[in-house]
C-alpha cells in the first residue's frame, strides 16, 4: 500500500538544520497495522506528518500504491482536531459526504454504531470525555474509508483502562475495514497489543533500529497481556527504549 524509501527529514534551526529522521525504509501492506515505536523526540510524529503530506522531506521517497489513495489521520489530541461546533453525528456525516460517500447518512450511522457512539451522537465534542473524543476522531476518519490510516499516539492522553478498552475495539474495526495502518506510540505495551509489526525508532535522529513481527493471535484481548510471549517482548522493547534514554 505504501513504501517508504531512504527517507530523511531535516528542520532548519539556528545552527543550520537539525536532522529529525535519517534514511528510513519500510513498507505497509493492505490491512496491516504497523506500529512505529520510539522515545520522545525520535521524530515519530514528524514521520507520520510526512507520510500524510503535511511535512516536507529532505530526501528519499514515499511511494503510494495509487495516486488516488485515500489517507486518513487521527491526531494526538482529539479535542484540538474535532470540530466543536458540529454534533458527533453531523461531523461524521460531513466527512463521509466530503470523501465522496454515496449515502453519507447511512455510512455515518453505521460508523457511529460500530464505535458504540449511537446513544450520544447528538452531543458536541466538548460534552464528551477524552476517550470518547478520541473514538469520535477515529470514527470520523474511518467513515472516509481511508486506504491508509495514520494514528498519531491516539491513546496517549487516556488512562490505562480506557486505552485497553479502546485499543482492542479500534483494532477490530480497522481489521474489518482492512485499512493499512501506521500507528505511532512510545508505549511497547500498546504497540504489541495493537500492531501486527513494530518498527523501533532510535532517538534523534530517528533511524529504524529494530523490527518485531508480533506473534500474538489476530483477535486481541486483555488476556494477551498475560501471554508469556507478550511479557518477554515487552521487556525486550522496554530495555531497548531505556537504552536510548540512558
Amino acid at each position: 500500500m505504501i513504501s517508504v524509501c531512504n527517507l530523511s527529514i531535516a528542520k532548519p534551526n539556528k545552527q543550520g538544520s537539525h536532522q529529525i529522521i535519517e534514511r528510513v525504509d519500510f513498507d505497509v501492506m493492505k490491512g496491516e497495522i504497523v506500529a512505529i515505536l520510539g522515545p520522545n523526540g525520535s521524530g515519530k510524529s514528524t514521520l507520520l506528518k510526512a507520510l500524510a503530506g503535511l511535512q516536507t522531506v529532505t530526501s528519499g521517497q514515499i511511494i503510494l500504491l495509487s495516486k488516488d489513495l485515500k489517507i486518513g489521520m487521527v491526531f494526538q489530541n482529539a479535542s484540538q482536531s474535532l470540530y466543536p461546533w458540529y454534533s458527533i453525528k453531523k461531523q461524521i456525516c460531513m466527512f463521509a459526504k466530503i470523501s465522496g460517500c454515496k449515502s453519507p447518512e447511512l455510512s455515518a450511522k453505521k460508523m457511529v454504531d460500530l464505535f458504540g457512539l449511537g446513544s450520544m451522537d447528538h452531543l458536541f465534542p466538548y460534552q464528551l470525555s477524552g476517550g470518547l473524543m478520541q473514538l469520535v476522531a477515529m470514527a470520523r476518519t474511518m467513515v472516509t474509508k481511508p486506504d491508509l490510516l495514520l494514528l498519531d499516539e491516539p491513546f496517549s492522553s487516556l488512562d490505562y483502562f480506557t486505552t485497553m478498552r479502546l485499543l482492542f475495539k479500534v483494532r477490530n474495526i480497522i481489521k474489518q475495514e482492512k485499512s493499512a495502518t501506521i500507528f505511532v506510540t512510545h508505549s511497547p505495551e500498546e504497540a504489541l497489543l495493537f500492531a501486527d509489526r513494530i518498527l523501533l525508532l532510535s532517538k534523534s535522529p530517528g533511524k529504524i533500529v529494530g523490527e518485531v513481527d508480533v506473534k500474538l493471535k489476530s483477535e486481541r484481548s486483555q488476556e494477551c497481556v498475560l501471554d508469556g510471549y507478550f511479557v518477554e517482548q515487552k521487556q525486550k522493547l522496554l530495555s531497548q527504549l531505556v537504552g536510548f534514554i540512558a
Binding site: 503530506g53 503535511l54 491526531f75 482536531s81 470540530y83 458540529y86
Partner: peptide
C-alpha cells in the same frame, strides 16, 4: 485557528470554500 483542525480538513480533501465554511468561520467566531 488550531492547526490540527485545518490539517484534518486539508488531509480529508476539503476544498478552500469547504474549509472556510466548515472550519475557518466557526473557528474564528
Amino acid at each position: 485557528i488550531s492547526p490540527g483542525r485545518l490539517q484534518v480538513a486539508t488531509l480529508h480533501g476539503f476544498s478552500l470554500w469547504q474549509k472556510i465554511i466548515h472550519v475557518i468561520i466557526p473557528e474564528t467566531i
